[in-house]
């Protein structure tokens, strides 16, 4: 049902590097889980509306009011690598 190739594709979508030793058991685990959740396919849900939110809440707004931001120091305090007031990351190729 789910091949190692599928697992690698999903891993790449998830941005998780998997080596060979990791991919195989994960494929097995996912297969087991997917087999279990396959029971949902038995139900007829054609006429059923999906529930994304469990409470009937809508129209929750905030007003357009400016509130204090963090300082540059507070913001960059979290990172392992910074430069010129910015977060520094490996080169992004466009």
């Amino acid at each position: 049902m789910i091949s190692e190739k599928d697992v690698k594709y999903v891993a790449s979508l998830s941005r998780i590097h998997l080596n060979e030793e990791e991919a195989k058991p994960l494929a097995k685990d996912l297969e087991k889980i997917l087999n279990y959740v396959a029971k949902l396919q038995k139900l007829d849900v054609k006429q059923i509306a999906p529930t994304s939110h469990v409470l009937p809440l809508n129209n929750v707004f905030r007003e357009d009011i400016v509130r204090p931001s963090l300082t540059q120091e507070e913001t960059l305090n979290m990172t392992v690598d910074k430069m010129n007031g910015s977060f520094k990351v490996p080169k992004v190729i466009e």
Partner: peptide
């Protein structure tokens, strides 16, 4: 990205992230 997430997440986290992505 890929190395950070490989090193940073444990096995169950990887399982669930991948199941959810799928």
């Amino acid at each position: 990205y890929e190395e950070t997430r490989n090193q940073g997440f444990g096995l169950e986290a990887k399982r669930r992230i991948m199941l959810g992505t799928y």
